[in-house]
């Protein structure tokens, strides 16, 4: 009897987990954001901030890939750079330009920290994202 109860318990949680995963992907899929927008939520949610959104398209018009990905040491991985505000203020990563000289400086918190709270770190519109959650099932949007 105990065993059955326990199994039910486990089942419930796997189903709940699956549903939660589906909900996340449907939320991300229904978004219409620009291709290559990166949501970075390594530490933001825990610190009570909105996640940061990095628009590749905006920066590509002003700089070539090489400036950030070779000179500033950004790795080709969403959330793989462990960017913190301390590093930015120190002049690393975003802080190399966002220092009030080349681009606006860090006191404009909400310009970057503008994502929907709770969004996980991900690359918007990436092929992997499309593959993991195929779009054959139309999703209802909350409106």
């Amino acid at each position: 009897m105990m065993l059955i109860a326990r199994r039910n318990f486990v089942c419930k949680f796997t189903i709940l987990g699956l549903l939660a995963g589906l909900a996340f992907f449907s939320a991300v899929q229904s978004a219409k954001a620009e291709y290559a927008d990166v949501v970075i939520n390594n530490y933001a949610d825990a610190a009570g901030m909105r996640p940061a959104v990095f628009p590749h398209w905006f920066h590509r018009i002003r700089f070539r890939c090489k400036v950030c990905h070779a000179d500033l040491g950004f790795k080709f991985k969403a959330g793989g750079n462990k960017i913190t505000m301390a590093k930015i203020i120190n002049g690393q990563f975003c802080g190399a330009c966002h220092n009030g000289e080349i681009a606006w400086s860090v006191e404009n918190c909400s310009m970057c920290h503008s994502g929907v709270p709770g969004l996980p770190t991900h690359f918007h519109g990436s092929t992997v994202q499309r593959l993991i959650a195929p779009t054959y099932k139309p999703l209802e949007t909350k409106q």
């Binding site: 954001a33 503008s114 929907v116």
Partner: peptide, 27 residues
């Protein structure tokens, strides 16, 4: 190329979201 407040990953409740440049304007 939805504008940031309507694109689903920017929070429309955030004031600066409405300051961000819409992609279509840039493109």
């Amino acid at each position: 190329n939805a504008a940031p407040p309507e694109d689903g990953i920017h929070d429309p409740a955030n004031d600066s979201t409405h300051v961000l440049q819409p992609p279509l304007e840039a493109f």
